[in-house]
Simulated scan of single mutants.
Amino acid sequence: MSALIPQRGASADPYRALVVDLQSSLDLESTWKACLKLIASKLPHRSCSLMFNIVNYEPTDARHHVVLPRNPDYVPATSLTISGPYLARHPQIKLYTYSQIVSEDPDAHRRRLDQEPDPEWNEFIHLAFWHDSRPEAVLSIRRPPDQSQVTAEEHAFLEQLHPMIEAALRRLRAVEGERSRRSSYEHFLRQVPLTVMFVNAAGESLFANNEAEKQCGRWNRGLRGSVDSDACFRLPEAVGAMFEAGKPGANDGQPGSVRRPHPALTGLSVKIDRNWQFSGLQMSPSYVVTFLDEPVAGEAPQESSQAALLVLQRLTPTERRVAQLVARGLRNHKIAEHLSRSRRTVEFQLNSIYRKLDIRSRTELVRALS
């Protein structure tokens, strides 16, 4: 029976759990630990390494595990010096041993002794994983003299283990790519002078830039009888229901968009847009939340143009707020009241804005942000 197919009986469930752990791993550490447990369950060995980030057939990083070393300080070499030339001659090879390398390349024995004058292994088995035409990772399983012979059952186990690890590495590559993209998006959004955040259907924050976190805290603190919470924005009542019912947007004329004023804080409002859904395991909606501040009585909330956003990105968050209030017509004493700062501080920040934008007056600032 196939080595990776769990046998019937008491031992079936524990082994199946090890397979599931590997198949569900989402980071390198959990993948490495799952590999170790699977190998230990089927294949005696002295040490084991997962080598990766391979450049010119040499790994730049690795995870190692040693079983009862002769020297307590022993650490396997993070190197493919012995097998590198063999991999170059055999592109896409998946499984090979030290004995196979030596039979083709007698100089491999010298390279072995140069690498480890007193190696703690007599034979190794390598599983190689390729990305296009280059090796992406190599799993090395090293065995002492009394375990040198690879049985047919062990060979079958390794042949079936290879595609499972390969699938895990592909999954890691995809997850890391998504994490990298998300990190780039979040870095960009944190620099954008907008108060933008994303929430799920329960109102739990998925992401918020610095400006949004401040306004979110202000929104929540201003709710009568609410618990002070800067970490969670609750969708105004009936907004989620309006989206679910498929009704058109209200107040701003944009389909799929809703704007609501704060129930207690005059001038503060929120614009909520429903994110596009995707077809997947979970179909729950999410929302883009933009906070809008209306410091001038009777004035509609203003949204910055793309050109204005580029100008605002050159300023600090505090300077952006002052510049936006100037653009909305407030004088320095009113800006100071609105931001709970001294008039002198506002004047200092305004002068800093003029220097950064290379302008000389409020009129030029208003024009730059129009």
Rank of each mutant, 00 (worst) to 15 (best):
A3N: 01
P14H: 01
P14N: 04
R16Y: 10
A17K: 08
V19P: 00
D21H: 08
D21V: 00
S24Y: 02
D27A: 03
D27G: 03
E29K: 14
S30C: 02
T31A: 07
I39Q: 02
I39Y: 00
A40S: 15
S41G: 11
K42T: 11
P44A: 04
R46V: 12
S49D: 08
L50K: 01
M51S: 10
Y57P: 09
T60G: 09
A62R: 04
A62M: 12
A62N: 07
A62Q: 08
R63Y: 13
V67F: 11
Y74F: 15
A77D: 11
A77L: 03
G84R: 07
H90E: 06
H90W: 05
H90I: 03
P91E: 03
I93T: 15
L95P: 01
L95Y: 03
Y96R: 04
T97R: 15
S99L: 06
I101V: 14
P106S: 02
H109V: 15
R110Y: 10
D118V: 07
D118I: 06
E120N: 01
N122Q: 11
E123N: 11
F124M: 12
F124T: 15
F124G: 12
F129E: 03
W130L: 02
R134P: 04
L139D: 07
L139T: 08
I141K: 03
Q147M: 14
Q147I: 04
Q149T: 14
T151I: 03
F157Y: 09
L158D: 09
R171K: 13
A174L: 15
G177Y: 05
S184L: 15
S184D: 13
Y185D: 07
E186W: 11
H187F: 14
Q191P: 04
V192T: 15
A201S: 13
A202R: 13
G203W: 05
E204F: 02
E204A: 10
N209F: 00
E213L: 06
K214H: 12
R218I: 11
W219L: 02
R224F: 12
D228Y: 01
S229V: 13
C232N: 06
R234C: 10
L235A: 09
A238C: 04
G246Y: 09
K247W: 14
R260A: 11
H262Y: 08
A264V: 13
L265V: 12
L265C: 05
T266V: 13
I272H: 05
R274L: 07
N275Y: 06
W276A: 09
S279K: 10
G280V: 00
L281M: 10
L281C: 05
Q282K: 11
Q282V: 09
V288Q: 15
T290G: 07
F291V: 01
A300Q: 14
A300M: 09
Q302F: 04
Q302E: 11
L310C: 10
L312C: 07
R314P: 01
L325H: 05
A327V: 02
E337P: 00
S340D: 08
S340E: 11
R344P: 00
T345I: 03
F348G: 11
N351P: 00
I353E: 10
Y354N: 01
R355C: 02
L357T: 07
D358R: 12
D358F: 10
S370E: 15
